[in-house]
Nucleic acid binder design. Structure first.
Length: 509
RNA sequence: GCCCCCAUAGUCUAGUGGCCCAGGACGUCACCCUUUCAAGGUGAAGAUCGCGGGUUCGAAUCCCGCUGGGGGUACCA
């Protein structure tokens, strides 16, 4: 089977019909890794021959997504290159495809088909009514005389140009990912595909192939949904008299429940959404590289450079992987923990801005404060977007009154085997002890409160739990002494005071 | 329906004839650590290698059939 001989040229050719989802990114990634591993070129090309599905801004969004995750291109719509333009509609406008179509027509390997969509539909329905489920269109025009064709054209009838696919025989091709196994397809199972629409616009099958040829693409690495149409491509290469590139069809990423491949509509997998949710491009890169590819039996965490160095197409699996958000999240957490706290603070700042916890743009004091706070949530963040919720009590009022931003129920203060009175007494002791504290720092805070708990005959958890709720308004929060320290003396004491008052009111009422 | 691809625990995977009564990771559970939650540590459960036939001294690994899943079946890509 074909060994890979550099230099190598590959491309990712998305259709701008919406956001790029992670399945598409994965295909792009494998192309990119292949190019980088073998020291070749990676080309980006926009395939916008479908006017109906075209979405304004989609191409820009896709480029943003690719760059965000760390995929760059040597040639493409925005960076140019020696084989441009890199947008198919532009290429069509320049008439690049015309001569190739004429060539096929001249050779009699393609033909003008005057069958209308309505007629086609009718034929399909007819075939079905006769019990023929597999309708394979072969235009009657295949056998028309030049005169017949000229006549139809003279009448101004619209036509498509179809490939004259052989009726008999078979086409075979190799696939690098399937171990170089041959895939054989009988021509009888094929039909005469449309190469050029009646509008004159070429279809994917034609345009991509001419572009690949002109752009000197050596390896076509694309999603496995293209396997069934590869025979047409082989036939086309043959029709042009060109040597086909080497094919590698990467498996799809399936939905979490395994029901079908990922779809933008049903799954929350638009690449830009991961950015919004606080996923790190390095983690996405690492995770996605492992969807259908592996290095060995245990290595999972790898840098970009390591992956580039280790990536080979032979180790790409032929079987589809399922989308596993839990695994991604776990990996993101690992990358988050690799940051220094200051790095993390800078990364989460935009999320706090968005949540309205700090100003936009953040003031220096806010950033400095955030840096002080970040260490205590560092190990608790998996998605960066979780940060605002973990930190909000440092920025908003906490209390029991109706109008307080972070309001909690006084009963939450009462820990296991406690009642309102004992809790109030404990908190009062804490209030006094903390008021008398000279240095408002983690160690003295801890020492004081531990001693206090013992004095009160309380388990540490009983006292600490009450204080936690008093100062954060919740039962789950970062470590208590760090929190008190981060909150400062004044605010901490005030919140404890509020809690005591609330408890006294409860027990009185 | 027809054509094509795929098939190791819930999930991602290692494995290319003996080193595998199957290794790693996520998830799950337990314990340790511990002021809560995490993180970290230790451990456990979980796979008759989809099923059935072959080939072979020997098969997760090769072959055939079946089943299941996925994809394609457009003047979409």
């Amino acid at each position: 089977m074909a060994t890979i001989t550099p230099p190598v040229r590959v491309r990712f050719a998305p259709s701008p019909t919406g956001y790029l989802h992670i399945g598409g990114v994965r295909t792009a990634l494998f192309n990119w890794l292949f190019a980088r591993h073998y020291g070749g070129q990676f080309i980006l090309r926009v395939e916008d021959t479908d006017e109906k599905r075209f979405v304004v801004g989609a191409a820009d969004d896709m480029m943003w997504s690719l760059r965000w995750i760390g995929i760059d291109w040597d040639e493409g719509p925005d960076v140019g290159g020696p084989y441009g333009p890199y947008v198919q509609s532009d290429r069509h406008e320049r008439g690049i495809y015309n001569e190739y179509v004429a060539d096929l027509l001249r050779k009699g390997l393609a033909y003008k088909s005057f069958t209308t969509p309505e007629e086609l539909e009718q034929m399909r329905a007819e075939a079905e009514s006769r019990g023929i489920k597999a309708f394979r269109f072969r235009g009657p025009e295949r056998d028309w005389t030049p005169e017949q064709i000229a006549e139809a054209e003279a009448q101004g009838k619209p036509y498509t140009i179809r490939l004259k696919v052989p009726l008999e025989g078979m086409t075979r091709f190799h696939d690098l990912i399937r171990g170089g196994e041959q895939i054989i397809i009988n021509h009888a199972d094929l039909y005469d595909i449309v190469l050029v629409k009646s509008s004159g616009m070429p279809l994917y099958h034609l345009a991509h192939l001419i572009d690949d040829r002109m752009m000197r693409i050596t390896h076509v690495i694309r999603g496995e949904e293209w396997v069934p149409s590869t025979p047409y491509h082989i036939l086309l290469y043959k029709a042009f008299g060109w040597e086909p590139p080497i094919f590698a069809h990467v498996p799809n990423i399936l939905r979490q429940d395994g029901r079908g491949k990922l779809s933008k509509r049903k799954d929350d997998v638009a690449t830009n959404r991961f950015w919004e949710r606080g996923y790190l491009p390095e983690a996405m890169f690492n995770y996605l590289s492992l969807q259908g590819w592996s290095y060995d039996d245990h290595t999972e965490l790898m840098t970009r450079d390591e992956i580039v160095e280790r990536f080979t197409i032979e180790r790409v699996q032929p079987s589809p992987a399922r989308w596993n958000p839990d695994k991604l999240k776990d990996m993101n957490g690992i990358y988050v923990r690799k940051f220094t706290s200051d790095e993390l603070a800078d990364r989460i700042a935009p999320f706090l801005v968005q949540a309205g916890l700090i100003s936009d743009p953040p003031a220096d004091e806010e950033l400095a404060y955030l840096r002080r706070l970040t260490p205590m949530i560092h190990e608790r963040v998996e998605e960066l977007s979780e940060a605002p919720e973990l930190l909000e009590f440092f920025f908003r009022e906490v209390g029991v009154a109706e109008d307080v931003a972070l309001r909690y129920e006084p009963v939450m203060l009462i820990q296991k085997k406690m009642d309102a009175a004992r809790t109030a007494a404990g908190l009062r002791a804490a209030y006094e002890g903390l008021s008398a504290l000279d240095a408002w720092q983690v160690e003295p805070l801890e020492a004081t409160l531990r001693a206090l708990a013992a004095e009160q005959g309380l388990k540490p958890g009983q006292l600490f739990g009450a204080i936690r709720v008093a100062i954060t308004g919740r039962t789950v929060a970062p470590p208590l002494f760090d929190t008190l320290n981060g909150l400062g003396r004044e605010r901490s004491l005030k919140r404890i005071e509020i809690a005591i008052a609330a408890l006294e009111q409860t027990s009185a009422g």
